[in-house]
């Protein structure tokens, strides 16, 4: 494979990384798991990728930690780590589930959560779960840190709020409340090495009276920017979990997709299918029979 000539810098600590950023002239791209950047490099866009800062050796960013009610995930945590994490399986199962569906084993072993967010592909598999978890990202630079919700950090397809001197270091969110269940659905064109065509992330819980008391819903690959659907959540909150309601929620979600993206060649297919997936996601989370913390993986 032929790659353009680049200035490649590898660092072992964040301090070294900040120094490298400060000393660097011109555009700088950050390399974490290499699964997106390497493909970008083959396009030979020299201006954008003059300098490559390889942060993959910064071990501090490779841990998933519990911190009271919070879960903190280092930005270099791989998809394999996410998929296998007992902490996530217990407190945010849909994120582990989504990570397990990314690419192939090799890609999951290399690709990182930070890279998945910063690449900001509209079909990034970790993003809808993170949005449904109200996750926040920490951006660090020599001047300090700032914290942004994932939904605000991603500005559009392949666009983020990251400034050129910042490194995304941490992703954090609150553990899901006790009794809350979650589910992630990915629709692709095959079962492995699949790029999502539609995704649905659902988190929810019923109260003692059987009404929905907690609901967060984030579709993926269907909106210009990742977002929770507050309007649909409002339709659902404090209601009984009925089939009709779920059908209605699905249809409303599909309408919102069209309002936000307009009619495209794919709309005729995606509209009914997104509605069905949202309905299925809700059914999965609110169905009565299964155990607490259901993490059953739906493969397609």
């Amino acid at each position: 494979m032929m790659l353009p000539k680049i200035n490649y810098i590898k660092v072992n600590t964040l301090t070294e990384a900040y120094d490298a950023i400060n000393q660097c002239l011109g555009e700088l791209s950050i390399l974490a798991g290499e699964t997106d950047l390497l493909i970008e490099l083959r396009k030979k866009d020299l201006d954008t990728h003059q300098n490559i800062l390889d942060i993959s050796n910064i071990n501090l960013l490779k841990e998933i930690k519990e911190n009271g009610e919070l879960i903190k995930i280092g930005s270099l945590v791989t998809h394999t780590q996410l998929a296998e994490s007992p902490i996530l399986k217990k407190h945010a199962a849909l994120l582990a589930q989504a990570a397990s569906m990314i690419g192939s084993l090799q890609i999951r072993n290399r690709g990182t959560i930070g890279g998945n967010i910063c690449n900001a592909s509209p079909c990034a598999d970790t993003v809808p779960p993170l949005v449904a978890l109200d996750a926040e990202v920490t951006l660090s630079s020599i001047d300090g840190e700032r914290v942004l919700p994932v939904a605000d950090f991603i500005k559009g397809p392949y666009k983020t709020a990251r400034k050129s001197d910042e490194i995304l270091t941490c992703i954090s969110f609150k553990k899901l409340p006790e009794g809350c269940r979650s589910h992630f659905i990915k629709l692709g064109r095959r079962n492995a090495l699949s790029i999502a065509r539609l995704q649905v992330a659902v988190v929810g819980m019923l109260d003692n009276t059987g009404n929905i008391c907690y609901i967060k819903l984030a579709p993926g690959s269907s909106m210009p920017t990742p977002t929770r659907l507050h309007e649909v959540e409002k339709m659902l909150i404090n209601e009984k979990p009925t089939s009709d309601l779920f059908v209605e929620a699905g249809e409303r979600t599909a309408q919102i997709m069209i309002e936000k993206t307009g009619i495209r060649w794919s709309t005729e297919y995606k509209k009914p299918v997104l509605a069905a997936l949202v309905r299925r996601g809700l059914e999965k989370v609110f169905k009565k029979t299964t155990n607490h913390g259901d993490t059953e993986t739906q493969s397609r």
């Binding site: 095959r190 079962n191 090495l193 790029i195 493969s299």
Partner: peptide
């Protein structure tokens, strides 16, 4: 390329 020309995988 093989990310866009879709052929079946082992999981299919």
């Amino acid at each position: 390329n093989f990310s866009t020309y879709i052929i079946p995988t082992a999981l299919d």
